[in-house]
Amino acid sequence: MAMTDDQLAQQVHDAYEKIELSDDAQDRMLAALLAASDAKQAEQNADRGPSTRTTRGQVIQMPKRSGLKRWMPIAAVLLAALVVVQVGVLTVGNHSGETRADIAPKSEESMAADSLDVNASDSVAFETAAPQEGEAKADSVASEVADSSEVSAMVEDCPLITLSDGTELVARSEQVDVVETGDLLEETTARSVDGEQSVACRVYELVGGGYAVSYEGEETYWLCD
């Protein structure tokens, strides 16, 4: 017997009625939905509202001060470390200067010596090696160049000196040992060739004749002609 439309409709309706969400499942789903809804609400509240921003600004401001205070001892330690490193560098620099001066005689005496490796950045490295004449000469020249380059600017900039008696002197880039200098002859001014620069200096008369000049702020004596 053929099923009528009404029968079919009723049958299908009844079939759908059998599909039912359990109470447990409903509670579980509802709890999850409410939690998600609350989280979203909280997120929205956090995102808006001028009072919240003001509070944030105040909260941020306070740690800034304490943060600065917290960093101050660290900054002091870093500064101290920097000073120590600076002193160390200067000490090594002085030591290397002495070594440069000493190295040539040592090489000449054919003794084992510390040879110097002067690189482009003027840093110094020590290494023990058998003396070699070529190396020693090269190092000697290098040390002279290094020494002269340290102060040659002063000599080159202001080489002209006129004594009170009218004697004209010209400073050369050649150092004179302090033992060779006699009494102070005169305190005067050295000037540049074009006359635009000048610097105070002391002129000494050398024991063996001739003159030496020492520029203000330096302890080096330069030969004058």
Binding site: Y16, I19, L21, A25, Q26, M29, L34
Partner: peptide
Amino acid sequence: IEAIFRRHAQTVYRVCYSFMGNAADAEDAT
């Protein structure tokens, strides 16, 4: 959301079940 869910949970679940064919997937879809 709570009121809407209580009003229509069964309806939505029936629709989902008719498509998915099993309770677990129907619950997820609901």
